[in-house]
Design a protein around this nucleic acid. Structure first.
Lengths: 221, 221
DNA sequence: ACCTGAACACCGTTCAAGT
DNA sequence: ACCTGAACACCGTTCAAGT
């Protein structure tokens, strides 16, 4: 244990790990994943590259910390519903919405299974699964299915949203994509999928997936 | 001028897109994702960078083509079982095994939703869902849930396998990870998960996830 | 201890020049 | 048309030198 050392007044702009992670989140949100570089960070924080490495091991750790920051804030808001299945739906939607607001989080979450943000998700959903009466290795199996579904959907929707912006042109984009599919492929199933594409809503479809897994977990209990 | 043109041993034929994709798959399999560079490719194919760009638009397209090559070969082997649910299990396991053999495929599949390999997976599973009696927008919802689960699990297991090699030390690695979890976290749920970790089998757990999904589809039909 | 910023060892991609 | 390979505009990371 160290004795409380008297310190000189902290410079208000002292570099800390948190400040670096915050700056990284700003760049990721404002300019996108490809613009997060150590050079952009040093410029935004008016420092040198070596200073950043004094607080952060490398870029992977920085991305994991930024992701953990976003997911942590979101999961802190989770309030358990009286109906345990409703809590699982709410948690899943929170994660979906966080990724919708920060697409880079969707990419990062599927990159490293034991990063802090993924462990957080596991813990919250694991507890909620316990609440609906799933325990032991069944909980571990159900949790893995649900987490893998959420992370997979997250990555796909995030990548899709990056390509097809959710603006006024969204429907036109989806119609163009549907037209491309039907042109390239005569399979009637592809045609049917293409016809459904323009009306497709990511968030609603994501929730249907959560419900399918919940129904499956209940059916097998 | 003297007679026949000297050629380097690997360069016995003209450069084609297929030859480039094959060489990329070799590098990815033998040396890993981080070693696939255009410089490594030019060296293996005894050519220049510009020549590669004459056949392939960029690195993303090359990775998508390599992934499509692996997935295409694997799905071509799919034979429909008499029991339609068994066909879905078999297809899912084929994709899992392909990713187990080529971890980079798992990473790539979750990067771009409308790449050829993902569309192939959609088509095969969509047809098999049709066979168990799911049609219209229900098929689209179920297909999205199943594909997202498979791709999410694929990415997680592939990233995990990269960190914890499936060799004699696997169990020791998992025990060390479990010990780390329990040290950092006193939550009894985390302790229970940690105790299950060393005996955990990715492939079996993946299949349980597919079964949960199938049970959910059946329950909601 | 904390920070600076030049230097190192790479990248993907382009393009004038060759056959 | 197809190919070559140097050049360009970047990267993440390191490290001797400063305060």
């Amino acid at each position: 244990m160290t004795a409380p050392t008297p310190r000189s007044p902290r410079r208000s702009d002292a570099l800390t790990r948190d400040r670096i992670v915050e700056a990284a989140i700003e760049i990721l949100d404002e300019e996108g994943e490809s613009h997060l570089t150590f050079r952009a960070l040093t410029s935004r924080l008016s420092t040198g590259a070596g200073a950043l490495y004094h607080h952060v091991a490398n870029k992977d750790e920085l991305l994991a910390a930024a992701t953990d920051g976003i997911i942590g804030r979101e999961l802190a808001e989770v309030q358990d519903d009286e109906e345990p299945a409703a809590s699982i739906r709410a948690t899943s939607l929170r994660i979906f919405d966080a990724i919708d607001a920060h697409p880079w989080v969707g990419t990062q979450l599927s990159r490293e299974p034991w990063q802090p943000a993924v462990i957080q998700i596991w813990k919250v959903l694991g507890t909620q699964l316990q609440d609906i009466g799933v325990t032991g290795s069944a909980r571990s199996d159900a949790g893995s299915a649900l987490v893998n579904y959420i992370l997979g959907a997250a990555a796909q929707y995030a990548a899709g949203a990056r390509r097809i912006p959710d603006d006024g042109d969204r429907k036109a984009h989806l119609e163009a994509l549907a037209a491309e599919w039907t042109r390239q492929d005569s399979d009637p199933l592809v045609h049917e999928s293409a016809s459904l594409l323009p009306e497709h809503e990511d968030r609603a479809q994501f929730l249907v997936g959560v419900d399918i897994f919940l129904a499956g977990i209940t059916a097998r209990r």
